[in-house]
Design a protein around this nucleic acid. Sequence first.
DNA 1: ATTAATACATAGATTTACGATGCATTAAAA
DNA 2: TTTTAATGCATCGTAAATCTATGTATTAAT
Lengths: 116, 116
Amino acid sequence: MNSSKELLKGTLTTIILKLLSENKRMYGYELAQAVKERTKGKILIKEGSLYPALHKLEQKELIQCEKVNIGKRVRKYYHLTPKGKTQKEVAIDELKEFLNTMHQLITTQPLYGHTQ
Amino acid sequence: MNSSKELLKGTLTTIILKLLSENKRMYGYELAQAVKERTKGKILIKEGSLYPALHKLEQKELIQCEKVNIGKRVRKYYHLTPKGKTQKEVAIDELKEFLNTMHQLITTQPLYGHTQ
DNA sequence: ATTAATACATAGATTTACGATGCATTAAAA
DNA sequence: TTTTAATGCATCGTAAATCTATGTATTAAT
């Protein structure tokens, strides 16, 4: 029942789109670090999740990448496509609504409810 | 990218535990209806998810059931065990923290960030 | 010289919820 | 009264998402 793992499902691509909308170009490792820092280590995106997710977003043409040589390494910088920018708005709106709904569900008492 | 489906992952058992902590005994169909009403139809728990989830919680001894005859039907009322009450607190705390973290992540701009 | 961090990638396992389907009772509508 | 909808339980197979483990290679730090 290690929730933080399960809770993350469905949010990863939205997080990626959001970060790319802010920074306009980022590479995989950078994305993972950004999430780690901004959530104070509460959300850790693993490589096994991140790279497949990026490839899937690329296939869907929501993001594009450009390879940049850094010394002998090749870094893959990703940026949002126009389609990706639109999808980012949709995804963020959905996520916000979900967070609100879930928040109400777990905080609100029903009118006829009795907390024993 | 039908999010509401994926976003729900990891939250179902927590929702069940929460509702049972409020109402002290509920049956499956009642749980589904309660979620539907309290979320204004935004979250719909399907039977294919609900009953397996209930059975899993029962196996883990977080909930118990008592069968009650309603006419010729047998209704299965579930209630939290002491273990379930403890777990409910843990799960709710985790979910709240997750919601907060996620909210910050998708609303906050990083200090050095540039929204194009 | 060795370790840690950076940077990419994939295969297989696990988990979760859903769709489809089935059975049976009961209330409402036609 | 017949039919439809709602109530109430259940399971099987599927799809989707993430993780673990593993692999390769470069670079910085110790």
